[in-house]
Design a protein around this nucleic acid. Structure first.
Length: 420
RNA sequence: GCGGGGAUCGCCUAGCUUGGUAGGGCGUAGGAUUGCUAAUCCUAUGUUCGCAAGAACUCGUGGGUUCAAAUCCCUCUCCCCGCGCCA
């Protein structure tokens, strides 16, 4: 959520942002609702003042043992008026908050302007693309031959985009998780295992409404939603709290499964475990002071890069364009790993600075002394490793001529072998 | 799941029986006073609208009763104690 003061002061800037993000948004309606809303606040406040004064008078009159019937009658009228006015005000308030919650974040000036991923800017490339002296297979082929993934039976028991991992691939998955947690633990991150389901209020704070229907699974008859990423549970963890300024930066590492509908992805990456309804992810989540958040952002992408370097997987870092990035983010880097089976770099990690946008939705504030004004914290999130997709990269980059998979050196001690 | 108890300002707490301006303490900040290693006193302290003055809101949530609700009634959530169930 943006500060409405900024929107009021500079609607041109917001209009430009909306154009550059290629987002349809009725800014005039928002400005109109904001105006109405403030007018209603003034008039209801006025009426409440009147009511408070009369209430006091009634109490005094009664205490003095006098007849208060006349004032009570007047008060009845005022009360009725107030109830009516409050009803219209509530309606406006509701419309206003619904609308402002869908207004995207202002993005950073370093973000390239463009409609889609074609405008993304490559900022870094690391590692050599492996050359194979044999016909390269994709991860589906390799895992089918080694019997490491059962997609057919998963389709039977759960549906498309589900999978049974089998045998050593289960071990590889756990190894990636364990290695990732050790890696972040060593860097001083606090480890978390969050709730995998959170309530509506928390989810609404963490994401933008339209993501609900395309991404988020709801539990029937409960006020619970399966998290699409640990970010959702981590961001809402400190909702409605005023934190101590001395506790920043709070660098958190969260391990969780992620559940996603992938409703808008029909036909895309249909096979294998590249795009699935559930996967495991170790996430970096940082609560930061506003003045430090850009520094933290660079640090987070550097940490994710270091992790993939340790895994010896070639990658490039893309700075996402205004039209391609998420609506709550002010700046997003994607780390794309080389996938020989697809002969392309594919998104494997994503690192965003949301500035105070997410914290404003969730009312996460801080101050250094109790009598200071509160300020909104900045929130940042980045994938350290999404294990299923990273395993695709490992399987394809580390495939051998005889159809096996070498295990990256760093993971060998965790898996307990050098080859699958 | 059943029975009992609870939720008040950053923290602790009074008020609820009997409806009528939510009081105190701690902490923190600013100020004053006294000067034997510190103490005492004053003021401020959450949210919204506002340049400000100010006003309104705030007693877990949402309803209801009433001229008026922290207080009475109902719903839900969470916490504590006991019982039941259970990896």
């Amino acid at each position: 959520m943006l500060d409405m003061k900024i929107v009021r002061q500079d609607p041109e800037k917001i209009q430009k942002m909306l154009r550059d993000r290629y987002v349809e948004f009725d800014l005039d309606s928002l400005l109109d609702l904001d105006k109405k809303r403030r007018e209603y606040i003034l008039s209801t406040d006025d009426l409440r003042k009147k009511k408070n004064e009369m209430s006091l008078k009634i109490a005094e009159t009664k205490k003095a043992g006098q007849d208060a019937d006349k004032i009570i009658q007047e008060m009845q009228l005022v009360s009725r008026q107030l109830t009516e006015l409050e009803e219209t005000q509530n309606k406006t308030e509701l419309e206003y908050s619904k609308l402002i919650l869908t207004l995207p974040n202002i993005f950073d000036q370093t973000v390239p302007i463009g409609e889609d991923s074609s405008a993304n800017k490559e900022v870094k490339k690391w590692g050599d693309i492996p050359k194979f002296d044999f016909q390269v297979s994709d991860h589906i082929d390799i895992t089918q031959k080694l019997n490491l993934v059962d997609l057919q039976r998963a389709a039977k028991t759960a549906g498309a985009r589900f999978y049974y991992l089998r045998g050593d691939l289960v071990k590889l998955n756990q190894s990636l998780i364990q290695f990732a947690l050790d890696f972040l633990d060593d860097k001083g991150f606090t480890l978390f295992q969050p709730p995998y389901m959170i309530n509506k209020k928390s989810m609404e704070g963490a994401i933008i409404a339209e993501d609900f229907k395309d991404v988020i699974y709801k539990i029937d008859d409960e006020d619970l939603y399966l998290i699409g990423t640990a970010e959702h549970a981590m961001a809402s963890m400190y909702a409605d709290e005023i934190l101590d300024g001395a506790s920043f930066p709070m660098r958190c590492a969260a391990i969780s499964p992620c559940f996603r509908k992938e409703a808008g992805a029909h036909g895309k990456d249909q096979k294998g475990i590249f795009r699935v309804h559930q996967f495991e992810k170790v996430e970096q989540f940082v609560f930061s002071r506003p003045e430090d958040s850009w520094k933290e952002h660079e640090k987070m992408i550097a940490i994710t890069e270091e992790f993939f370097q340790k895994l010896e997987i070639p990658y490039r870092v893309m700075l996402l364009s205004s039209g391609d990035m998420g609506k709550i983010s002010a700046k997003t880097y994607d780390l794309e790993t080389w996938m020989p089976g697809q002969n392309a770099y594919r998104e494997t990690a994503s690192c965003s600075n949301c500035l105070e946008y997410q914290a404003r939705r969730l009312k996460i504030r801080f101050r250094d002394r109790t009598n200071e004004d509160t300020k909104y914290v900045n929130t940042l999130n980045s994938t350290l490793v999404a294990t299923e997709r990273t395993m695709v990269a490992i399987i394809e980059n580390f495939q051998t001529k005889d159809g096996h998979i070498e295990i990256p050196k760093q993971l060998q001690k965790y898996v307990g072998k050098k080859m699958i």
